[in-house]
């Protein structure tokens, strides 16, 4: 399934991440996932919220360069070998992964995997065909 994500460019300046969170708080938007890819001079913060459209609007108004990106999401059992199974399937079809993040879903014995790949439609068909549950 396609899952929308926001991505924010953050130059390396103290207080920028906190400012990001403040803007969402003031707009009463809930952050569901958030992670940062960092370099020495800037980072890209990626997040999923309960209202991405509104989040992008308020972030832009507050001077954040913000992108909207579609990811694909899957749910697997929270046990050894599950990540490998997904990656191996993608590898066999030579589907490139730009980035990936995953988290365990507390209390349900399942884990979520979110990916950005170069051919999302093919990846969804391939994984669901092989019994990986779409998110």
């Amino acid at each position: 399934m396609i899952i929308n994500q926001i991505a924010v460019f953050l130059e390396n300046r103290s207080g920028r991440i906190c400012e990001f969170a403040r803007v969402l708080k003031d707009a009463n938007i809930n952050i569901q996932t958030m992670n940062i890819a960092d370099t020495s001079e800037y980072g890209i913060l990626r997040a999923i919220t309960d209202d991405n459209e509104k989040a992008i609007r308020v972030l832009k108004e507050n001077g954040f360069n913000t992108a909207s990106t579609d990811l694909i999401g899957f749910q697997v059992a929270d046990k050894p070998g599950e990540m490998h199974k997904v990656l191996q399937l993608l590898d066999q079809e030579k589907i490139n992964i730009s980035y990936l993040y995953s988290y365990a879903q507390v209390g349900s014995n399942t884990a979520a995997i979110l990916l950005k790949v170069d051919s999302p439609d093919l990846a969804i068909r391939l994984l669901t065909h092989n019994g990986v549950k779409s998110f």
């Binding site: 460019f9 130059e11 890819a37 370099t39 890209i44 832009k60 360069n65 909207s68």
Partner: peptide, 17 residues
């Protein structure tokens, strides 16, 4: 040289930056 991005320009990947 710090250079400002134009409004509306956005990235989700490091390699684009």
């Amino acid at each position: 040289i710090e250079v400002e991005l134009l409004p509306g320009v956005a990235f989700d990947e490091i390699k684009s930056v």
